[in-house]
């Protein structure tokens, strides 16, 4: 098996999970209502858990540093997360639509990875299946409800869909290891993932009375997987790493 290819795949998944987990946790305490605040915060914690599990695989299987070092001690340009996850939380419509797009991609990716020849990844995929099922259920219920809600909720959801879709397609930026991953039966690849993702979300968006915009190839927000980020990632990392950069040996 090609170690570099596996490292690349796991690192981008871990970075996605850490960044979206941090972003979604920014709603804690200011969510629209208490019950939703609890649910959204809890899912954010799940994502941090996924990030930790993935960094741990990199540490144990590929000789990379400890999870804390990988999560909190790397430069912005070393992050392989897609640009979708680093965008500020915006209004709740934006955060919900991002959650909907991202979690369907995430759940589908892990579903494919249950068949992976790389056992640690297949095991993790089976372990977190239930969590991901709730994440997509939560997203689906809200998108359907607000898409079919009032004129205002529908308009806000549609504009969030329009704004977010080109970034969501950026999740599937192909890596230079697509062929190796496929040949080794580690992962069936970003093209296949994007196809399955579209098959899932298209009917859901329709049922919500919303429309997916046409995205030209040029509109797709690629770059994140190669370390090219928007201006929003660095300030987020600075805030996230505030404690560890103040006192490296802090114990919790």
């Amino acid at each position: 098996m090609n170690n570099d290819a596996i490292k690349d795949l796991i690192l981008k998944m871990a970075d996605d999970a850490l960044v979206i987990g941090h972003r979604n946790s920014e709603w804690t305490g200011i969510g629209p209502i208490m019950e939703e605040d609890i649910a959204f915060s809890s899912m954010a914690q799940d994502k941090i858990g996924h990030a930790q599990a993935l960094y741990q695989i990199l540490h144990a299987e590929s000789g990379m540093p400890e999870p804390d070092v990988l999560g909190f001690q790397r430069k912005e340009s070393e992050f392989k997360s897609c640009q979708l996850v680093e965008l500020p939380i915006g209004d709740y419509a934006f955060s919900l639509v991002r959650h909907f797009f991202f979690d369907h991609a995430d759940a589908t990716r892990y579903e494919m990875l249950t068949q992976s020849s790389f056992q640690p990844l297949a095991n993790l995929a089976k372990k977190i299946k239930g969590e991901l099922k709730y994440h997509t259920l939560h997203a689906d219920v809200w998108v359907k409800k607000l898409g079919n809600g009032t004129e205002e909720s529908k308009a806000r959801m549609q504009s969030a869909v329009n704004e977010t879709f080109p970034y969501a397609l950026g999740i599937f930026e192909p890596s230079k290891y697509e062929n190796e991953l496929k040949a080794d039966s580690v992962f069936a690849g970003e093209v296949e993932l994007q196809k399955r993702w579209l098959d899932k979300i298209t009917p859901l968006i329709e049922q919500a009375g919303l429309k997916l915009p046409n995205a030209r190839q040029d509109d797709i927000k690629y770059g994140g997987r190669n370390g090219y980020h928007t201006e929003h990632l660095q300030p987020m990392l600075t805030e996230m790493n505030e404690v560890i950069s103040t006192d490296y040996n802090t114990e919790w």
Partner: peptide
């Protein structure tokens, strides 16, 4: 839980 309908009530109850 506070919820507008049973579907969201279940979604909230699961986490709470």
């Amino acid at each position: 839980v506070h919820a507008p309908d049973a579907e969201l009530a279940l979604v909230f109850a699961k986490e709470q």
